[in-house]
Nucleic acid binder design. Sequence first.
DNA 1: TTGTAGGCGTTATCAT
DNA 2: ATGATAACGCCTACAA
Lengths: 332, 332
Amino acid sequence: MKITIKDIAREAGVSTATVSHVINGTKNISEGKTKLIKGIIDKYNYVPDIRAKNLRNLKTKTAGLVVSSFPDSHVSGIVNGVGKRARELGYQMLFINTIEDQEYEKETIKLLSSHMVDGIIITPSKMDSQYLKKYIEQNLPIIQVLRYDPNLPLIPKVTMDDFQAGYDATVHLLQHGHHHIGLIYAKADVTSTTGRIEGYKAALKDYHFTFNESYLELGNATVEGGLKAIKHLINREKQITSLFVLNDLMTVGAMQGLTALSLKCPEDIALIGFGDFPAANITSPPITNVSMSSETVGQTAFDVLLNKINNPSYSRHIQIPASLMIRRSCGC
Amino acid sequence: MKITIKDIAREAGVSTATVSHVINGTKNISEGKTKLIKGIIDKYNYVPDIRAKNLRNLKTKTAGLVVSSFPDSHVSGIVNGVGKRARELGYQMLFINTIEDQEYEKETIKLLSSHMVDGIIITPSKMDSQYLKKYIEQNLPIIQVLRYDPNLPLIPKVTMDDFQAGYDATVHLLQHGHHHIGLIYAKADVTSTTGRIEGYKAALKDYHFTFNESYLELGNATVEGGLKAIKHLINREKQITSLFVLNDLMTVGAMQGLTALSLKCPEDIALIGFGDFPAANITSPPITNVSMSSETVGQTAFDVLLNKINNPSYSRHIQIPASLMIRRSCGC
DNA sequence: TTGTAGGCGTTATCAT
DNA sequence: ATGATAACGCCTACAA
């Protein structure tokens, strides 16, 4: 038997309006009745039906978080950061992982847009996310995190400063005398990748070295992917003396690959990873990493979403800086 | 301007019932009208308001996942597993991290119980979770994952086989001649910890060694916690020759601590971790771990929840086996 | 095959 | 200080 506000009202001998008011403190009700009603509510452990409440109020106090992959600590840091801030601000969080599947992503957004949430934080699976346009036209608050569609200028963004991070890491390698720098990326067609590669190119250019397309290799964001990638890359481009790996799991794979190839790090091949994970300083050698605070990204993302909800014209792009955590794999 | 089923009906010149039926395929509507109505729906990108739908239907097709901490890959694996299975079965997932705060946990359950979700998967923050009783009496489908209250026999559980895992790891160490085994645990008053410790004790007993309470040390599930714990432990109990560490992050901290103490692993101190993380085979030395598939736990948990939803008397306890991943830190 | 209308549980306006 | 009641948007008997 489900118990409703009517039941409470009946038992208290008052109207539903009165009960509603004591629940929400929205009007002055006499002390006596207040106490009586609260007692009955407690007795039955009554909680107002949130579906009805939402329907009436046009607010759900929940936000959607749609990410496109979830294996690494980076994404889980973001989930954590968003969740933390959401909690602080009294929001619930609906979490969906699209596993890089844009069709599912579209379905998901469609569903969430049906007043399931008050706003959405999304890591789009593809650079082209024009399908989002119709939602912003409908004034559904959406923001992008980590990755974005450059042709969606009205949607706020919270990302890493990928260009700068790529630039800095590359310069570091360059300054250690490495001109042949292999780069293993997780996924093409995504701004987090392209931004970092732009930074890599810019550094090369500033130091007067030519960019070599075939120094780039796809690693699919997994350990095995990183392992395979490094084997291909080093077989193909034997002059490579250093590696820039754009994701934690691939970094682990790359280190395994180096061992498999009997290559010493950093003597034969220097390496800088991207992301940074707790164990990075107990590996052999400890791994230099572009370190980023994914929790910060998550928290900021939620704040930005709230901004967007309260001010529909908000459209800022916030770039969180990364920093180079120097350990031994880079040859320092 | 929000568009509703009425608007669609008006523009199509039909009743809302007809529109509803073509949307849900719940009755035969003539081809012509069907096409017309679908056209209009597409034109306006109309999606039925899920709040209203839920209110009417008494189903939300969303499940709550309430975990109590989120720093490690273990929990994120579970989130991932639950999400994957939920997606396959057409459910959405509401994710909340209570950060080991039972008060917040209670509030959360209360909120979710207000017909926000069809069922709840929870990792309770404390062994005593009797507050859940009133919810099961109200027939809210709840299941426990990873940790549980032993005095809640009616609630299904999906956990690791913690006892067996603790037993096996300890036996492994014992067989290598280690009788003085320090144990660093993440959190007291929680079945995942007590189960593993029971296994540890049982192994000791089977091999005729006495259990020493002061070989146990709390490490708080963090890197720093593990680091501190090992320092305390080794200072206090100098005869210890091996370590069993019940969580990944603490394992990393313990390895750091060994280095800080100028202790060689495994020569001076052998070590077995619990959880297993991608980088565990590129550390120095590679770390032997009790390895568990958290994704499996997550997927199973969702299946069990669905069982509970469909059959309120379901109350099984499923124990997922772990396996020892032998690498070098244990001295093999 | 299609339409009418009541009700899901709340909140909030307008009376009293 | 309270109460009656009309929405919120949808689904679904029941009627036509």
